[in-house]
Write a protein that binds this DNA or RNA. Sequence first.
DNA 1: TATGAATGAGTCTTCATTCAT
DNA 2: TATGAATGAAGACTCATTCAT
Lengths: 206, 206, 206, 206
Amino acid sequence: MELKQVNTEQTILEAAERVFIEKGYSATRCVEIAEAAGVNHAMLHYYFRSKESLFNRIFEQKAAQLLGFFVQAFDRELPFFEKLKIGIETHFDFLTQQPGLPLFVLREIIQDKERKDLILQKALPLGMEILKRMRQAINEEESQGNIRPMQAQDLLLNIASLNIFAFVAAQAIFDNQADITNEQYKNFLEARKKNNVEIIINSLKI
Amino acid sequence: MELKQVNTEQTILEAAERVFIEKGYSATRCVEIAEAAGVNHAMLHYYFRSKESLFNRIFEQKAAQLLGFFVQAFDRELPFFEKLKIGIETHFDFLTQQPGLPLFVLREIIQDKERKDLILQKALPLGMEILKRMRQAINEEESQGNIRPMQAQDLLLNIASLNIFAFVAAQAIFDNQADITNEQYKNFLEARKKNNVEIIINSLKI
Amino acid sequence: MELKQVNTEQTILEAAERVFIEKGYSATRCVEIAEAAGVNHAMLHYYFRSKESLFNRIFEQKAAQLLGFFVQAFDRELPFFEKLKIGIETHFDFLTQQPGLPLFVLREIIQDKERKDLILQKALPLGMEILKRMRQAINEEESQGNIRPMQAQDLLLNIASLNIFAFVAAQAIFDNQADITNEQYKNFLEARKKNNVEIIINSLKI
Amino acid sequence: MELKQVNTEQTILEAAERVFIEKGYSATRCVEIAEAAGVNHAMLHYYFRSKESLFNRIFEQKAAQLLGFFVQAFDRELPFFEKLKIGIETHFDFLTQQPGLPLFVLREIIQDKERKDLILQKALPLGMEILKRMRQAINEEESQGNIRPMQAQDLLLNIASLNIFAFVAAQAIFDNQADITNEQYKNFLEARKKNNVEIIINSLKI
DNA sequence: TATGAATGAGTCTTCATTCAT
DNA sequence: TATGAATGAAGACTCATTCAT
């Protein structure tokens, strides 16, 4: 009648995700993941062959999430400024759930050329798609004189910069275990979210 | 009659800086630094006792630079918007010289609690000073109805977000050896610099 | 209603024989045998307790075969030279069926003192028996002036040397999968067989 | 005033040679070699990078020795039968110095396809050269009616078989540490040497 | 100062073996 | 019997650090 791990593979995956995101690839030891998952370290290799392949599995998934969410956030049928506001907020809320994600991906992309190429290859089409839609929306509004001219690419980067950096800053300022129970942390993020929406809107409003 | 390194200590320091910034603490091997410096690896320990202490030496310096420059950039006697523009640009240009710096510092801060506390301890007074001056300037302009109300902290973070993220993005997109000879890279940064100034100005203009 | 292995134990034994002979004890992994046998690797231990005991089972059998056949080959009622010729050829043909056998046994005997002692203990009586009979036959012929004097032990070793080495050489020269379909391989062995008979006969003929 | 290893690299090489020859590649542990050499096991990797490359270094050298000696042994200006006798004896004496050599090389050649190809590639030209010279000598004698017809290849294999197998048998029968102080071992080899010369001579004499 | 050699504590990985089902 | 999961003891290899010269 033991409460055995229903799914060791999943347990490892989740532990690995936490540890890798916190420490990055090379600072993470396999035993650490095993301990975090409460399993024998040989299990990592039983299920995932090697540290690297376990990492890649997580990394690719996370990188995909990070980008995929961007599309999702801005893909609604709403008035332009409304869509923008909701999009920024949704993206921000997503990051709130996984505050370490952006830095994790960036760190490894920058550190490892192959990893970067791999990700870029997958990310480019998606990024192009996002840009295409944004450009369309911008053009429409712009032609109606509703907004100032702006490159879709710039808009995208502005949003990403402000949203992502909010969490990088939060991680750098607050304790690692920054959870929502921390009032200061919560307030900080709330303020940034509001600020980011305003800045972006202002940058477009005439 | 040899043309030996005039200053081995300095040579090591410079090599270590390059390698640590590129790969981060744990992915860097001492031998790698030694090779980059063209010296025997035992020299690292002769001069700096340990990998960690060599790293700290560089890390603290770089972290200080990163923040110190912020003060410097915004500490001029100029009309407000002028000062803002020049400040953002100066900061941006500084990062152009050392594009890997911000991510390097952030990466290690987030990875190591002690490092973070160490840095925060040193950075806080400086940060407070910057904020104080910004707040003063903002209040002045605001009371004269020249700008919208804004928290100094928010302004600071906005600038940092946009400027820093420009380089993170550039590193993620372009090749590691992104040098100024690369036209695309150069244009990308130029565009971001201009964009960042505009966004910030717009966020304050009434 | 499955068509399961009628006899798993036997299947494992056969697979183990193949793999052990090809790779030797320490280069062989249990999983490899299991795969070759098409069974779960836990079955090896279920049936044979350990890698070592499975190996020993095979090894002893093979070592016995190797020697046993020698007796059999020379134990017929025929004129001396006839008996010799047929014996050499029969022995040679036996090795053709199991070309890897001699090296396999020798390899492990030399590698492991205990194994060697074990084998020697079993082989000695058999070897003595063979020698006794040979000596008898030689003496008889010698006393009749039909052959030159020769130690039985030497005759035995000469035959073994020439026959066994033919296959060692073949393995070293031809591809591992040296099968009888390979013409060159076939011819090579055929030539050696003929050569060996002649040499031995010549060494005894007056 | 310590008696430090004059040459650690050499010490390791010698120890590795002994252990590898005795146990073969896969049954040999690096620590074992290190212990046999009386050095820290990290030294193996310091000097030779990996177990495999250390092995290859030894293996290639030994394989070359094994073949090279064959040429040397039969390359003298002497009457045919004299040359043959001296050649066989010289070869035999060489093996006496390194009794484990032939089996060591054969074992690994047979076990590893790549190793085999590597060796064959190097060995073939040498082998061809040996055969050419033998064939020449044989033809000359044969045309003068001094010897029976025989393929050079067969003669070569006969000698190799008898000489090499003497040591394989000795290793299988006597203790591993078979040294020349062991009278029985010594006598056994002496007898085999004499026997081998006779057999070969008889196989050619008319 | 400078160098090559040496050390020992890890770190990843493999593998025979056992266990629960 | 049969299977997939789990374990622990190695094993190869790395690397920061120290030492003798």
